[in-house]
């Protein structure tokens, strides 16, 4: 069986096999997923260890001079994924929330079901399904799109949870007060409910954005180019001896992004926070 395996089609970035086979149709998939994959992994892994033992660990300068441009691209890719995924999560989260508070029962149930599925499904499970299972239904999306979809479907469920608790912080009396001055249902929602729910969700949404960024590391699980920050570390460490340095550069870039998001969130929150 081992001979049948084309070991060149497998690199460690495509830890999950079938990446290439995916494009060549479903028939290839079964082959690339055969048990030989596991043996192959081990052989490959041993060879990495050998490379590592031979090499030296690079300095930051050395690493950046060689991979600087790729790091920049990786950072931009992570940012792009985060921004797109967060925006989509926000929109979907609002839609799901509208469904969950609607007076129409099936819509409520569907919204609830969405939240329970996507706040509980592991990111890897979802991504693998999108990338490797959907082609069996003749639905083939690009790797980038698959990563993007996985990284917004999950945060959207959490977004809806935060918006729901934002709605529940609103004093019922204020809704009655709006009614009593003759505001219609839609005016009450637009002028009283949504502004207050959004304002009290700024901080949870800030941490949601950081969580979304962490979710986009899923990109390292498919052969997506350009690499994201996590994928690049895996790439560098399989082709050269980036070691701790490569890891730390990515880690620091993630952390800095998280800090910036947190700062901006705090700033917005201070501006719009509702005194109670």
């Amino acid at each position: 069986m081992t001979e049948e395996c084309d070991s060149e089609t497998m690199t460690v970035e495509t830890v999950f096999p079938g990446g290439k086979a995916r494009n060549e149709g479903a028939a290839m998939l079964s082959f690339s997923l055969s048990p030989c994959f596991i043996e192959n992994e081990q052989i490959r892994f041993l060879s990495y260890v050998r490379i590592f033992e031979r090499g030296v660990i690079m300095s930051v300068n050395e690493l950046l001079s060689q991979y600087g441009e790729q790091y920049l691209q990786a950072l931009l890719t992570t940012w792009k994924l985060t921004a797109l995924a967060f925006s989509a999560a926000f929109v979907v989260g609002i839609l799901v929330t509208v469904m969950r508070v609607s007076p129409i029962r099936p819509l409520r149930a569907a919204g609830e079901l969405y939240v329970q599925i996507f706040r509980n499904i592991p990111g890897a499970s979802l991504l693998m399904f999108l990338v490797y299972a959907l082609p069996y239904l003749s639905i083939v999306w690009s790797y980038f799109l698959c990563v993007l979809i996985a990284s917004f479907l999950i945060p959207a469920a959490f977004c809806s949870e935060y918006l729901m608790s934002g709605i529940n912080t609103i004093d019922v009396g204020q809704i009655e007060a709006a009614r009593s001055i003759g505001m219609t249902f839609s005016q009450t929602i637009r002028k009283v409910v949504i502004p207050q729910a959004l304002r009290s969700s700024v901080l949870p949404l800030t941490s949601l954005m950081v969580a979304t960024m962490l979710t986009t590391a899923l990109a390292s699980q498919v052969p997506m180019r350009p690499y994201d920050l996590t994928g690049l570390v895996a790439h560098i460490n399989t082709h050269a001896v980036g070691g701790v340095t490569a890891f730390f550069i990515s880690a620091v870039l993630y952390c800095l992004t998280a800090v910036v998001i947190g700062r901006v969130g705090n700033w917005i929150d201070k501006k719009v926070r509702i005194l109670r």
Partner: peptide, 14 residues
Amino acid sequence: GVPTLLFIYFFFLV
């Protein structure tokens, strides 16, 4: 602030 996957690659590769 760091994704779990990056930590995993740290222990797996580094």
